[in-house]
Amino acid sequence: MNGEHMQIGEVAARTELSLRTIRHYEETGLVIPSARSQGGFRLYTEADVARLMVIRRMKPLGFSLEEMRELLAATDRLDAGADLSDDERRELLARLRGFEEAAQRRVVDLRTQLARAEEFAATLRDRLTRGAAS
């Protein structure tokens, strides 16, 4: 194996995704190994790792597999896009803008949830402290 390709175990370590999760994303068509070794092992490139990182970052924000697929299709098209018309480029960028706005809203929601969880943990900690002092 050359330095350009990685086996799934190295990709799992680099992305902090399980082998099972990577295989699931492969089965759903979100990522496809760039090559196979002579022995049939999946081989991935840096671009594949970057794609998995996009997926990994979308997951905790609650994006569905279909939304992930849509975003990746738009970025793939933009990345390949020497033959894009101006209208198509604008439409793809508008899609990306929509995902960015959705991500920002979801980050705000997560921060609110985290603040509430921290308040709850502090309430329990205070209760335990009062209970221990009694």
Rank of each mutant, 00 (worst) to 15 (best):
M1W: 05
G3Y: 12
I8V: 04
G9I: 02
E10Q: 09
E10D: 07
A12L: 14
A12Q: 13
R14C: 06
E16C: 08
L17E: 02
S18M: 05
R23G: 12
H24I: 14
E26V: 03
G29A: 01
L30N: 04
L30S: 02
L30Y: 12
V31Q: 01
V31N: 01
P33D: 11
A35P: 03
G40K: 03
F41S: 09
R42E: 12
Y44V: 03
Y44E: 04
Y44C: 03
E46G: 06
A47M: 09
D48W: 06
A50W: 05
A50P: 08
R51W: 12
L52I: 08
M53W: 07
V54H: 01
I55W: 00
R56Y: 09
R57M: 10
P60G: 08
P60Q: 10
P60I: 14
G62D: 07
G62Y: 15
F63K: 03
F63P: 00
S64N: 05
E66K: 14
E67K: 06
M68V: 12
A73Y: 01
T75P: 01
D76V: 01
D76F: 13
R77I: 00
R77G: 00
L78Q: 00
D79V: 00
D79A: 15
A80V: 05
G81D: 03
D83M: 02
L84T: 00
E88I: 01
E88G: 02
R89C: 00
E91N: 09
E91W: 02
L92G: 02
L93V: 06
L93T: 05
L93F: 04
R95M: 15
L96P: 00
F99M: 03
E100C: 08
E100L: 07
Q104G: 07
R105N: 08
R105L: 07
R106P: 10
V107N: 14
V108N: 11
D109W: 10
L110W: 09
L110F: 04
T112R: 12
T112H: 10
Q113G: 06
L114N: 15
R116E: 13
R116L: 13
A117D: 13
E118L: 10
E118V: 09
E119Q: 15
F120M: 15
F120T: 11
A122Y: 14
A122D: 12
R125T: 04
D126S: 07
R127K: 13
T129S: 08
G131W: 07
A133T: 11
A133Q: 15
S134N: 13
S134R: 08
S134G: 15
